[in-house]
Design a protein around this nucleic acid. Structure first.
Length: 465
RNA sequence: GUCCCCAUCGUCUAGAGGCCUAGGACAUCGCCCUUUCAAGGCGGCAACACGGGUUCGAUUCCCGUUGGGGACGCCA
């Protein structure tokens, strides 16, 4: 049977990292099996669902390169089908109308808690004659679940998990306003879409028992379930807003490449021997549910950084430049473009994110005179003879890398200084930074005129003797 | 409170009874390279939560303890 998976986020916020990973796993599983990957927006909560969130989900998935098959399914548009299923169950005596008020429910839960039982509905209307219904109260429809026995899930990740039915109450299928609840909608939609594998977060594991009971009542075969452990923050608690940036869009803005994000998310909770760098094609070939771990994983930014640095180095310069554009203060003119092209191979060697890269590129995008930082000014003030000697040499030097190197080394030697004594102030003068690509490279990229101009203005900061 | 799940270096993980004096990666520390910072190379530190079983033999199987997490809505 061909595999059909789905990603079913609710549009009540941005695309969370945990959700993104769930989407990735579903996508990989489907692609691995040459199956189908569907996207369903679970917008049955009319209060909290927003268009903005829907767009964030689309954008996030597109950025990650997780393409879905067919049209997006909007769950709310299928509400009448869900309601019909609920009414069918009432007709078949498998569900019933319940007129309990919020106050009554409240006291039932308090009561249960007092008796050291899970807070739940006590079945007040389960066998009560609907004729005794209070006037003017619109009822909900509840599923009549078995009170004896147990329900078992054979989870592809968690194994066999069983819960006593006494633990579960008669869940609401249809709200008093006639709209379906999540439990009903998911089951009907997954069934109608022919979903074969439900891969979702561990936090849904306990919902699965209820959904299984629903499949049962409806007379449908349930799909296979795979509950993947949640992603935790550094403190071990479920990753949430208090841990900082948790939505995929933030990481794009922080300068991470989708390739890195995918690789990182993939390795969070799944492994393939000693392999760490796993590009998309390899991931599709290798991905399986068997190797999904059972323990939650903590989000580790340093690891993401490392992968990002790796993928940036791997990216061809023109593609990297394209990615970088969004992080640059303005569009590049011809000169800037030429310098950046020359500097990029070296710059990308020393950046963890596109933000770093943009920052490091900055000296090459400016024209003399540079505006030097406090720190730069201080260094230049004390730069002394080495910088003067370097300038004197550069003024008449042949502007070729080998010649520049040989000449500057000679200058250092003549002055009886280590080469660093010259290179350091020269670097500050040329770039305004402590760190940069190799000094000869910088000279060559900037060219004679620009380099001399920069050093000349830098010299002006020198302490008067 | 009730139920469910989880447990290998700081972190992500390999490991499906002997291959384990537990492997890799990130982080960290040191050395090399070196004009800076990276990258790269080499090396160091660092883990099977604890207690019982089962077995000739447990990181691997079972039970318990401890610790962590999750779920208990007319939210999804």
């Amino acid at each position: 049977m061909p595999v059909v998976t789905r990603f079913a986020p609710s549009p009540t916020g941005s695309l969370h990292l945990g959700s993104a990973r769930t989407a990735l796993f579903n996508w990989l599983f489907a692609r691995h099996h040459q199956g189908t990957f569907l996207l369903r927006i679970e917008d049955t909560d009319r209060e909290r669902s927003t268009e903005e969130s829907i767009q964030a989900i689309f954008k996030g998935l597109q950025w990650l390169g997780l393409d879905w098959d067919g049209e997006v399914i909007f769950q709310f548009s299928r509400a009448n089908l869900h309601a019909a299923a609920a009414r069918r169950l009432v007709e078949e005596g498998k569900a019933y109308y319940c007129y309990a008020t919020p106050e009554e429910l409240e006291s039932m839960r308090a009561e249960a808690k007092k008796k050291a039982q899970p807070p739940r509905y006590n079945g007040l209307w389960r066998d009560r004659d609907p004729a005794s219904a209070p006037a003017g109260v619109s009822p909900v429809i509840r599923l009549k679940v078995p009170q004896q026995g147990a329900t078992q899930v054979l989870d592809l990740v968690q194994g066999s998990v069983t819960v006593n039915n006494a633990q579960l109450d008669d869940m609401v299928l249809l709200r008093s306003d006639g709209t379906p609840t999540y439990m009903l909608s998911v089951v009907v939609d997954d069934h109608d879409a022919g979903i074969t594998h439900v891969i979702r977060g561990d936090d849904h594991l306990t919902n699965t028992f209820r959904q299984l009971q629903l499949y049962n009542a409806l007379g449908w075969t349930a799909p296979r379930f795979a509950h993947i452990p949640l992603i935790h923050g550094a403190d071990g608690a479920k990753l949430s807003k208090r841990h900082g940036a948790v939505d995929i869009g933030s990481y794009r803005d922080l300068g991470y490449l989708p390739e890195a994000m995918n690789n990182y998310l993939l390795r969070l909770g799944w492994g393939h021997g000693d392999d760490e760098i796993i590009p998309r094609d390899q991931a599709i070939a290798w991905f399986d549910i068997d190797h999904v771990g059972q323990a939650p994983a903590r989000f580790d930014r340093a690891r993401l950084d490392h992968l990002n640095a790796h993928y940036m180095r791997l990216l061809p310069d023109d593609a990297l430049c394209e990615q970088l554009a969004a992080f640059l203060p303005s569009a590049l003119d011809a000169t800037q473009r030429r310098r950046l092209d020359r500097a990029l191979p070296s710059l990308k060697q020393r950046a963890k994110t596109l933000v770093d890269l943009a920052e490091n590129a900055s000296p090459f995008l400016q024209d003399a005179p540079l505006s030097y930082s406090q720190e730069a000014q201080e260094v230049l003030r004390l730069s002394g003879a080495p910088l003067e000697q370097a300038f004197a040499f550069l003024e008449t030097a042949e502007w070729a890398p080998e010649a520049l190197e040989a000449g500057l080394r000679q200058v250092a030697e003549q002055g009886g200084e280590a080469f660093g004594k010259i290179a350091s102030p020269l670097r500050w003068a040329l770039t305004g930074c402590r760190v940069s690509p190799g000094i000869f490279e910088v000279l060559e990229i900037l060219g004679r005129a620009e380099s001399l101009q920069r050093v000349r203005t830098a010299l002006a900061f020198q302490e008067r003797k």
